[in-house]
Every structure is written in C-alpha cells, then in structure tokens.
Amino acid sequence: MDVFMKGLSKAKEGVVAAAEKTKQGVAEAAGKTKEGVLYVGSKTKEGVVHGVATVAEKTKEQVTNVGGAVVTGVTAVAQKTVEGAGSIAAATGFVKKDQLGKNEEGAPQEGILEDMPVDPDNEAYEMPSEEGYQDYEPEA
C-alpha cells in the first residue's frame, strides 16, 4: 500500500510541476504579447503594419512553449490582441483601416495563427491545408 501511495504522490508532483510550467509559459506569452502591443503603439504610420505582424510573430513563438489545451486559448487571445492593436492603430490615425491585415508588401496577414497546427491532446499534428499553395516548377 505504501508503494501505491508513494507512486500516487510522485504522479501528483509531476502534474503540479507540469501545471506550473504551463502557467509560466502562458505568463511569458502574455508578456511578449504586451511587449508587441507597446511596440505597435510606438510606431509611426509606416511601421504600424509591420508592428502588428511582430506582435503576432512574438506571440506565436511563445505559444510553442505552452502545451496542451492552453495553446488553443493563448492563440485565440493573441489573435484578438493583434486585431485590437490594429483597431487602436486605425482609431489613433497611425494607419488607414484599409491597410490593416496586410503586410508591407500588401499581402493579407489573416491566418497567421489560424494555420498553425495545434492539437490540445498532444496526440497528432496535421499540416495546414494546401489550398493556398501553388506547385513550383523550376525553369529549365
């Protein structure tokens, strides 16, 4: 019985440690998101679009440190934060509304985080759909 109880105690310690790591990862992701939003706020009209992409990228980098179902929630929060940063930029006159959601080359930025393969159960990952990809044929 002692062996059984000791095993359960060790398992509990492992769960607590994993929860603490997840909590730490979420806190880091939130900190990076805040950094990115402050970065966007300090940019001029020309830099705002690039700044919004930076927020998304920093958040995406930190999301990889967070495991399990938390990833889905962090990704949703990050996307809403990026959308909010863009709205703030438009409201303050840093950028025109028609410039939001495009990178410096004018290509749409939507789907940055949505296409990231995420499995809350950590069982399997699927690649994003290939609808947006084109076949590449090298020139002879």
Rank of each mutant, 00 (worst) to 15 (best):
V74P: 01
S129F: 13
G73H: 12
V66I: 15
P138D: 07
N103Y: 05
G47V: 12
K96Q: 08
Y136V: 07
A76V: 10
A56Q: 05
K21Y: 09
S42C: 08
V118E: 08
Q109C: 07
A69P: 03
N122Q: 08
T64G: 06
Y133N: 12
K60Y: 05
K43T: 04
T33H: 01
Q109R: 10
M1E: 00
E139L: 05
G67V: 10
V74E: 01
A27F: 14
T22M: 11
V82Y: 09
K97L: 09
V95P: 06
H50Q: 13
E13G: 04
V16E: 04
V37P: 00
A56I: 14
E139A: 09
G67T: 10
Q62M: 05
E61A: 05
M1D: 00
Q99R: 05
D135Q: 09
A90Y: 11
N122M: 09
K80Y: 06
V71G: 02
G86K: 07
E46N: 12
P117M: 08
H50K: 07
E126I: 11
G106S: 13
V70I: 14
E61C: 07
M116V: 01
K45D: 00
S42R: 12
E114N: 07
E110N: 10
E13S: 08
V15L: 08
Q24L: 08
D119W: 03
Y39V: 05
A85M: 14
D2G: 00
A85N: 02
K34M: 03
L113Y: 09
A27P: 00
A29Q: 02
M1I: 00
K32L: 15
V16S: 08
V95W: 14
F94M: 02
P120K: 07
V66Y: 12
V70D: 01
G101H: 09
D121F: 12
A56F: 07
V3D: 01
T44D: 00
N103S: 06
V15D: 00
A29E: 00
T59A: 12
E126F: 03
G7K: 08
E83I: 12
Y125K: 12
A18W: 15
E130M: 07
G31V: 03
Q134M: 14
V49A: 09
E13P: 01
K60C: 09
K80D: 02
T59C: 11
K80E: 02
E13A: 14
Y136L: 10
G93E: 05
V74M: 15
P108E: 12
I88L: 11
V63I: 10
G84K: 11
V49Y: 14
V55E: 00
A91P: 03
Y133R: 02
A89S: 05
K34E: 00
P117A: 05
T22H: 02
L113Q: 12
V49P: 02
G73Q: 12
E20D: 06
Y133E: 10
G67E: 02
K45N: 01
T64W: 08
N122T: 08
V82K: 06
V3Y: 02
G84P: 02
E123F: 13
K23Q: 08
G14N: 06
S129R: 04
A78K: 04
H50Y: 11
E61F: 05
G14S: 14
A17Q: 12
Y136E: 03
K32E: 00
V82W: 12
V95S: 08
V40N: 00
K45C: 11
Y136K: 15
V63F: 11
A124M: 11
Y39D: 01
K43L: 13
A19C: 04
E126P: 12
T54Q: 07
G47K: 07
E20F: 11
A11H: 00
P120Y: 05
A124V: 14
V16P: 00
V71R: 07
T22E: 00
Y39R: 07
E35W: 10
V63L: 10
I88A: 03
A78N: 01
T81Y: 11
G73M: 14
E83Y: 03
G84Q: 12
T64E: 06
Y136Q: 09
V74C: 09
I88W: 14
Q109E: 09
G68V: 10
A89M: 11
M1T: 00
Y133Q: 07
P128L: 10
T64N: 11
K23D: 00
A85L: 15
E137P: 04
G132E: 07
A89F: 13
K97F: 13
F94R: 01
T64F: 12
K80P: 02
E83D: 10
V15T: 01
G68T: 12
V77D: 01
E61S: 06
K34S: 01
Q62G: 04
Q109D: 09
T72W: 09
G31L: 11
K34Q: 02
V118N: 13
K45A: 13
E130I: 05
D115Y: 09
K12R: 12
Q134I: 09
A124K: 13
G25M: 12
M1C: 00
E105G: 07
N122L: 08
E114Q: 05
I88C: 04
D98S: 11
E139N: 12
K12S: 04
A69S: 12
G25K: 13
K102A: 10
G73F: 11
K102G: 06
G47Q: 13
V74F: 08
L100D: 11
G36E: 03
T22I: 11
A89C: 08
E83A: 11
T44Q: 01
G84C: 12
Q134V: 03
V118M: 11
V40G: 01
L38E: 03
T64R: 08
K43V: 14
V52R: 01
V70G: 01
L38I: 03
L113V: 15
G86C: 13
S9D: 03
F4P: 00
A89D: 03
A140L: 10
E35L: 06
V49S: 12
E61Q: 08
V70T: 02
T92G: 08
V3L: 04
V70N: 01
G47L: 12
V74T: 02
K60N: 02
F4S: 00
G111Q: 11
V26W: 15
M127C: 07
E57F: 10
E61D: 05
Q99W: 13
V74G: 02
V95H: 14
F4W: 04
H50R: 12
A85I: 13
V66N: 02
T22C: 06
T92E: 04
K23T: 03
G7N: 10
D121K: 12
G7T: 10
G86T: 08
V26I: 15
G36C: 11
V63A: 04
E35I: 14
E104M: 14
V77F: 14
D135H: 13
K43M: 15
V77M: 12
Q24H: 07
E110R: 08
G25V: 13
K12V: 15
P128W: 06
L100Q: 07
G47M: 07
G132V: 09
T64A: 08
A85H: 03
Q134A: 06
T72R: 08
K6L: 07
A124Y: 15
S87T: 08
D135L: 09
K58E: 01
L38M: 13
P138Y: 09
E110W: 03
E130H: 08
G36Q: 15
K102C: 06
G101T: 07
E20T: 05
E61R: 05
T64K: 05
A107H: 11
T72Q: 10
N122C: 06
K45M: 15
E123L: 10
E20N: 12
T92H: 03
V118L: 09
L38H: 03
G51N: 05
